[in-house]
Simulated assay, not measured.
Amino acid sequence: MSRKIKLLWDFRGPDAQETAKHHTIHLKEFATIENLAFHEIDIQEKNPMLFSAFITIDETDMKIYRDALKPHRGEVG
Rank of each mutant, 00 (worst) to 15 (best):
K70E: 10
K28T: 01
L36Q: 10
E75S: 05
D10T: 06
E18W: 05
H26C: 04
E75C: 01
F51R: 06
D42C: 02
I25H: 09
W9M: 10
I33C: 03
I64G: 01
M49E: 13
M1N: 09
K63H: 07
R3D: 13
M1C: 05
D15F: 11
L7W: 04
E34F: 06
W9A: 07
Q44F: 04
T60L: 13
K28W: 02
M62H: 09
R73M: 12
L69Y: 02
A37H: 13
E29F: 05
E59V: 03
M1G: 12
R12N: 10
G74Y: 14
H22R: 12
M1I: 06
L8T: 08
M49I: 07
F54E: 08
L69V: 04
N47L: 07
N35R: 15
R3Y: 11
D61A: 11
D10I: 07
I64T: 15
D10M: 08
I5M: 14
T19C: 00
K63C: 00
S52T: 06
E29A: 13
Y65L: 07
L8A: 08
Q17S: 07
I33G: 00
H39E: 08
A31V: 02
K63D: 10
E34L: 05
H26T: 06
I55S: 11
T32N: 14
R3K: 15
I33V: 12
D15H: 11
M1F: 03
A68E: 04
K46R: 12
L50R: 13
E75M: 08
E59D: 06
E40W: 00
V76W: 04
E18D: 07
F51G: 03
A37F: 10
D58H: 07
I64N: 04
I64K: 15
H26G: 10
P71D: 11
D42M: 06
I55C: 08
E59S: 10
D58N: 15
F51W: 12
T19V: 13
H23G: 01
M1T: 10
A53R: 06
H23I: 00
L27D: 01
F38G: 05
S2C: 05
K63G: 00
I5V: 15
S52M: 12
E45T: 09
D15A: 10
Y65V: 02
F38A: 07
H22P: 00
E34M: 14
G77Q: 08
N47K: 07
M62A: 14
L7Y: 02
I25Q: 11
T19A: 02
L8E: 12
T19S: 04
T19N: 03
I41E: 06
T19E: 01
K21E: 11
A31W: 01
H23E: 09
L7K: 13
H26M: 13
D61F: 06
N35P: 01
Q17A: 10
I41G: 04
